[in-house]
Simulated scan of single mutants.
Amino acid sequence: MVLNNIEKLLEKYENGETSLKEEQVLKNYFQSDTVAPHLEMYKPMFDYFLVSKKEQFTKDVPLKTTKSYLYQWISVAAVVVLLLGVYFNTSGNRQELGTYEDPQLAFNAFSKSMSMVSKNFNKGASTVGYLEEVNKGTETLGYLNELEKSTQIIFKK
């Protein structure tokens, strides 16, 4: 009857459903010399729990810590540099670009810039005319390929 009770407690223990009193019953059973042969595999586990309960930490724990304020001062300096950079960047550059109050002035400036773009675009497009000469040259190379094919037919390479 006791063995059945121990097996049920072991099953509950493996499922994590035992109380502290039931676990103490299991520990007491496995500390005794009358452990059933088919339950011998659990004995080292409960022996380990008994030994680990008696272990103590004997080393000294240093409670004083030495704080280094270097990182704090570096972060403060970084924030100051950042704020100074933002301040001098925004206070010195108050120049407004590209805005006109008079619509006629805005249109004239736009027309001037578009005529400059058009002039440079036309200059670049005029140099593209040479590409047609290159195309004519490649066409004559096509005739050379035809000539080579005919010579291959004649000489049967």
Results as ranks from 00 to 15, higher is better:
residue 29 Y to N: 03
residue 35 V to A: 01
residue 67 K to H: 08
residue 38 H to G: 00
residue 87 Y to C: 07
residue 16 G to Q: 05
residue 33 D to Y: 13
residue 71 Y to K: 15
residue 35 V to S: 02
residue 38 H to K: 06
residue 72 Q to M: 12
residue 72 Q to V: 13
residue 105 L to Y: 04
residue 76 V to N: 07
residue 55 E to S: 15
residue 77 A to Q: 07
residue 17 E to G: 09
residue 76 V to K: 05
residue 14 E to S: 10
residue 15 N to V: 07
residue 80 V to R: 07
residue 60 D to E: 14
residue 75 S to F: 10
residue 42 Y to H: 01
residue 12 K to W: 02
residue 64 K to F: 10
residue 15 N to F: 08
residue 88 F to G: 11
residue 39 L to Y: 00
residue 53 K to V: 08
residue 66 T to V: 09
residue 58 T to K: 14
residue 101 E to A: 11
residue 12 K to D: 07
residue 15 N to A: 11
residue 19 S to D: 07
residue 85 G to D: 12
residue 48 Y to N: 07
residue 85 G to A: 04
residue 76 V to E: 05
residue 101 E to M: 12
residue 93 N to C: 05
residue 25 V to Y: 06
residue 37 P to S: 10
residue 52 S to N: 14
residue 70 L to P: 03
residue 50 L to P: 01
residue 13 Y to W: 11
residue 18 T to D: 07
residue 102 D to W: 06
residue 18 T to L: 06
residue 77 A to D: 04
residue 99 T to K: 13
residue 14 E to F: 07
residue 24 Q to R: 13
residue 79 V to H: 03
residue 18 T to G: 04
residue 22 E to C: 02
residue 44 P to F: 00
residue 14 E to W: 07
residue 87 Y to F: 15
residue 68 S to W: 07
residue 28 N to D: 13
residue 79 V to L: 10
residue 47 D to W: 08
residue 30 F to E: 01
residue 43 K to T: 00
residue 73 W to Y: 14
residue 19 S to K: 08
residue 77 A to I: 05
residue 51 V to T: 12
residue 18 T to R: 04
residue 81 V to A: 11
residue 41 M to L: 05
residue 19 S to V: 03
residue 83 L to S: 13
residue 19 S to Q: 11
residue 37 P to E: 05
residue 38 H to S: 02
residue 19 S to W: 09
residue 16 G to V: 04
residue 50 L to Y: 14
residue 68 S to N: 11
residue 45 M to G: 01
residue 16 G to H: 08
residue 98 G to P: 03
residue 51 V to Q: 11
residue 32 S to C: 08
residue 43 K to Y: 00
residue 58 T to R: 15
residue 47 D to C: 06
residue 74 I to N: 08
residue 77 A to F: 08
residue 27 K to A: 05
residue 12 K to H: 07
residue 101 E to K: 12
residue 97 L to S: 15
residue 27 K to F: 14
residue 25 V to Q: 09
residue 83 L to Y: 08
residue 56 Q to G: 15
residue 53 K to E: 11
residue 46 F to T: 01
residue 100 Y to P: 02
residue 30 F to D: 00
residue 83 L to R: 09
residue 51 V to S: 06
residue 100 Y to L: 04
residue 79 V to A: 09
residue 106 A to S: 04
residue 93 N to T: 12
residue 31 Q to M: 15
residue 84 L to S: 12
residue 75 S to P: 03
residue 35 V to K: 01
residue 39 L to S: 00
residue 46 F to A: 00
residue 15 N to L: 10
residue 54 K to N: 13
residue 14 E to G: 07
residue 92 G to Q: 15
residue 16 G to N: 05
residue 53 K to D: 12
residue 77 A to C: 06
residue 35 V to R: 01
residue 42 Y to R: 00
residue 53 K to Q: 13
residue 95 Q to G: 05
residue 104 Q to C: 04
residue 58 T to W: 13
residue 53 K to T: 14
residue 51 V to D: 10
residue 50 L to S: 12
residue 63 L to N: 09
residue 104 Q to V: 13
residue 42 Y to V: 00
residue 106 A to R: 03
residue 95 Q to I: 14
residue 98 G to Y: 10
residue 66 T to Y: 05
residue 61 V to Q: 13
residue 78 A to Y: 04
residue 68 S to G: 06
residue 16 G to L: 06
residue 104 Q to T: 08
residue 91 S to V: 13
residue 104 Q to L: 13
residue 77 A to P: 01
residue 65 T to L: 11
residue 52 S to I: 09
residue 67 K to F: 12
residue 51 V to W: 10
residue 100 Y to C: 06
residue 33 D to I: 12
residue 58 T to D: 14
residue 71 Y to W: 14
residue 47 D to R: 01
residue 82 L to W: 13
